[in-house]
C-alpha cells in the first residue's frame, strides 16, 4: 500500500475519537472511505493489527460486526464486561 501503516493506523484512531461523542462503533466501510485509493484488503490488515495491538475491538450483533476503540461506548458497561 502507498500509505505508511503507522500513520494510517493513527488516522483510523483519530477518526474514531473524533466521532466518539455520537458513536463508538463503526462499519468496516467507514474505514475504507478514509483511504479511497487503497484496496479493502489492505485496510483490513490495518484494522487486524489494531485489534492485535489491543487498540480496537470487534462488536457483533450476531449478524453484523463493527469495529470500535477498546473500552469505548456504552455497551461494555451495560453488559457488565468493562
Amino acid at each position: 500500500m502507498a500509505l505508511d501503516p503507522e500513520s494510517a493506523k493513527a488516522e483510523i484512531i483519530k477518526f474514531c475519537e473524533e466521532k466518539s461523542a455520537s458513536k463508538s462503533k463503526f462499519y468496516f466501510n467507514d474505514f475504507t472511505k478514509l483511504f479511497p485509493d487503497e484496496k479493502t484488503r489492505d485496510v483490513k490488515k490495518l484494522l487486524t493489527q489494531l485489534v492485535q495491538e489491543e487498540k480496537m475491538v470487534f462488536w457483533s450483533s450476531g449478524s453484523t460486526t463493527m469495529y470500535g476503540l477498546t473500552g469505548a461506548g456504552k455497551q461494555a458497561h451495560s453488559e457488565g464486561e468493562d
Binding site: S22, K23, K74, S78
Partner: peptide, 12 residues
C-alpha cells in the same frame, strides 16, 4: 441513552 448508541439503533 445510557444503554445504547442512538445512531446504531436508528441504522438498525
Amino acid at each position: 441513552d445510557n444503554l445504547c448508541e442512538i445512531p446504531l439503533a436508528v441504522a438498525a
